[in-house]
């Protein structure tokens, strides 16, 4: 055997060993990931089983992990005896409305805080951030009274039981502005200076340069805002007084009794709420993580 072939064999063995290590590593990695996925999704089974059961109780002895029957009464009840579809439509309009308006005002304000100079900038930004730290429950009643009185001033556009009253106060999110500012600050300064020297207006710079680069960040913020509002309970609770203007979270809560609750119905409602939001999420998730998004969050 020649020296050369001996070396080749040694290298070959090393490579084999390396790829084995790599394979073992990736097996371990996927095992760990699988465990986390199980922990994340597994508990949902606790909703599925009671949703398809005729019993009104959550628990039973002995435990039933899987539905033993395919009882659809809970779903039928929701669709025929409650305004479920209407709540769903309201929730969708509410969450979409807040998301669209929030994205517009947040990106604009983020741009101003990141790339424009004006007196008092730091102080205003600090004040805006500070309002992020007040518990939402504390602002509930004052905001309610405000909206209640805006009814006359806005010709009924912003008031009780209106989409305006439901949506507009929730569009103000210092978090969104913070996030957009952080993103725009990471864009190379040269881009802006070149455009300014060319005499481009701020609006032109914003729409032609900043917005296209910000697409991933806008999607991330959009999904985040949408999810938050989809799950929002307190504000829609106080600002809507009619069954037809309610959103899903509030509507479902009105199905709970003081002492006795039909958990089968609540579980079915939760499943029916999860389905559309999961679809929305699946649709948008391909934009969810793109390398440039990280820039959105960098100093």
């Amino acid at each position: 055997m020649s020296l050369k072939s001996e070396h080749t064999k040694e290298l070959h063995d090393l490579a084999l060993q390396n790829s084995r290590i790599r394979r073992t590593k990736s097996v371990i990695a996927y095992a760990v990931l699988g465990l986390f996925v199980f922990a994340s999704v597994g508990p949902i089974i606790y909703i599925i089983s009671p949703a398809f059961r005729e019993s009104k109780s959550l628990f039973s002895y002995p435990p039933q992990w899987l539905p033993n029957s395919f009882y659809l009464g809970n779903f039928k009840f929701l669709l025929s005896e409650t305004n479920y579809i209407r709540w769903g439509i309201n929730t969708f309009i509410f969450a979409t409305g807040v998301t669209v308006i929030a994205l517009i005002i947040d990106t604009l304000a983020g741009y101003a805080f990141a790339r424009m100079e004006f007196p008092g900038k730091k102080i205003i930004f600090g004040l805006v951030l500070a309002t992020l730290m007040v518990p939402t429950a504390a602002l509930l009643a004052p905001t309610y009274l405000l909206v209640r009185n805006l009814d006359d001033w806005t010709f009924g556009l912003i008031g009780l039981d209106t989409y305006g009253g439901l949506i507009i106060p929730m569009t103000v999110s210092p978090l969104g502005v913070f996030m957009m500012r952080q993103f725009i600050e990471t864009l190379p300064k040269g881009l802006f200076e070149a455009a300014r020297i060319d005499g481009a207006s701020e609006w032109r710079i914003f729409t032609r340069i900043v917005l296209p680069l910000m697409k991933p960040a806008v999607v991330v913020l959009g999904i985040f805002v949408f999810m938050m509002q989809w799950a929002n309970f307190l504000w829609p609770l106080v600002i809507t007084t009619k069954d037809e203007t309610r959103v899903l979270t509030v509507g479902i809560a009105t199905l709970q009794g003081q002492f006795v609750t039909n958990w089968g119905v609540i579980a079915a409602a939760t499943l029916m709420t999860l389905a559309p939001i999961t679809l929305v999420f699946l649709f948008f998730q391909r934009w969810f993580v793109q390398a440039s998004m990280a820039g959105a969050l960098k100093q």
Binding site: M116, V128, E202
Partner: peptide, 26 residues
């Protein structure tokens, strides 16, 4: 300041009405 008002105005207006005012009141 004109473009600043244009960019920051919408947010700052809504913020002062729906967040800052309730906060001052609290």
């Amino acid at each position: 300041l004109v473009p600043v008002v244009g960019f920051l105005g919408p947010f700052l207006f809504l913020w002062s009405v729906f967040l800052a005012t309730p906060m001052v009141w609290s």
